[in-house]
Computed example of a mutant assay.
Amino acid sequence: MSTYTKVLTAIDLTEEAPQVLNRAIEVCKAHNAELMLCHVVEPVGYAYGGDIPMDLTELQDQLDAAAKEQLDNYGKRHGVSEENQIVTVGRPESEIHRLAEERKVDLIVVGSHGRRGIQLLLGSTANGVLHGAKCDVLAVRIT
């Protein structure tokens, strides 16, 4: 079994996040590894396809601030230092890969809803992370 030293846990800040985080904490304890938390805020323009002729900067800033506050709450609850709490903006798969490489992570932990059929064909964040990662990925099945 590999020994992990740095574990990047990508959470979506929904009610399902604790399932993913708890599994990551178990792995960190078992390997005496450093825990990092990240949340990727997708750019507001993605949701509207860039078709809205208005400045969405304030809305984006509000989403970023709310995400930082929520991630900080998880960090404080589980003893994760501020430097290991990362909120970034972009495509989740790309940002998670970038962070994992920059921080020299040996394991990425993400949640997976266990999609089937057409949902599987459309893809998911967990699937995107798995197929582009240069380190191990643990997909925690959300129940």
Rank of each mutant, 00 (worst) to 15 (best):
P43F: 10
S112V: 09
L121Q: 09
D12T: 00
K76E: 12
L63Y: 13
I96A: 05
T143K: 06
M1G: 08
Q19R: 11
C28W: 12
H131S: 02
Q70P: 05
V89T: 14
G79K: 05
H131Y: 04
E95Q: 13
R141I: 00
T14F: 04
E42Q: 14
V109S: 02
Q119Y: 12
L63D: 05
R77M: 08
A47E: 01
R116Q: 14
N84A: 14
L138W: 05
I108D: 02
G50I: 09
V20K: 05
M36D: 02
I118E: 05
L99W: 04
A66V: 13
E101Y: 11
T3N: 12
I142H: 04
A17R: 07
K6A: 10
G45F: 11
D51N: 09
R103G: 03
V40W: 08
A100W: 10
I11T: 02
G114D: 00
V110E: 06
A33V: 15
Y74D: 02
E16W: 00
V27R: 08
G117N: 12
G114E: 00
Q60N: 06
Y46G: 00
I25M: 08
G50H: 06
E95V: 02
K68D: 11
E15Q: 01
C38Q: 05
S81N: 08
V140Y: 00
N32Q: 15
R141W: 00
D12H: 03
N127C: 07
E95K: 14
H31R: 09
T3I: 10
T9A: 10
A65T: 15
E34A: 11
K134D: 11
L107R: 08
V27Y: 08
T14C: 07
S81A: 13
K134G: 07
V40H: 11
E15C: 01
E16C: 02
A139V: 07
K104Q: 14
Q60S: 12
D51E: 11
L37T: 11
R23L: 03
N22I: 03
T57L: 03
D61F: 12
G132D: 02
H39W: 10
I11Y: 03
V105R: 12
V41T: 12
R115S: 05
N22W: 02
L56T: 12
A133Y: 08
L8Q: 03
D12C: 03
G45V: 14
L71R: 06
E101P: 07
A10Q: 00
G79I: 08
A67P: 12
L71Y: 06
L122T: 06
K29I: 06
L63K: 11
V41Q: 15
D55R: 01
D64I: 15
N73W: 08
L13F: 03
E95G: 01
H113Y: 10
H97I: 02
L59K: 01
V89K: 13
L21Y: 00
L138G: 08
